[in-house]
Amino acid sequence: MISTFVWLVVVWLMLWGSADLGLVLLGAVVAAGVLLLYPLPPVRSRVLRRPHRLVGLGLFLVADLVISGIRVAWDAARYGRKVRAAVIAVPVLSDEDYVIATAANLLSLGPGKFVLQLDRRERVFYVYALGVRSAAEVDRARADVLGLQRRVIKAFGEPG
């Protein structure tokens, strides 16, 4: 609750691009108003518990964004209409909603893949992967999804 409040004030100040006392007070009023009008269930966030892992995850994502961006562009230019894709089932490694949602979002951020469906009860991600042309590449896409999940869990999942 407090951290959400602080975050909203920070976003407010970033939007204005400056910080004087009046602006901070106004931001506090707006943030309080938002929290009162749109209450959200509390989520126990551990985003900042292991900062070095978080930085590692960030760098990995930037690299992933560039590499798979080039791959999707290449697939589109090289194969065009004859491009192949796959819908693969991958086990969900965590049982925390917060971690699962983060993993799904980060997975869908990079080019080439997105989460088509999540079966929460059976704990399965159904992932659409573009540019998959052989059984070996299906396995590699599945390993990528598992690897990303492990990184997210290491960054802010429950240990163990």
Binding site: L65, V72, A73, A76, G80, F114, L116, Y128, L130
Partner: peptide
């Protein structure tokens, strides 16, 4: 322009 269906085009449209 080049990709065949909605999900693959979605990749090209949003990600790069």
């Amino acid at each position: 322009l080049r990709l065949p269906d909605v999900p693959s085009r979605l990749q090209a449209a949003t990600k790069p």
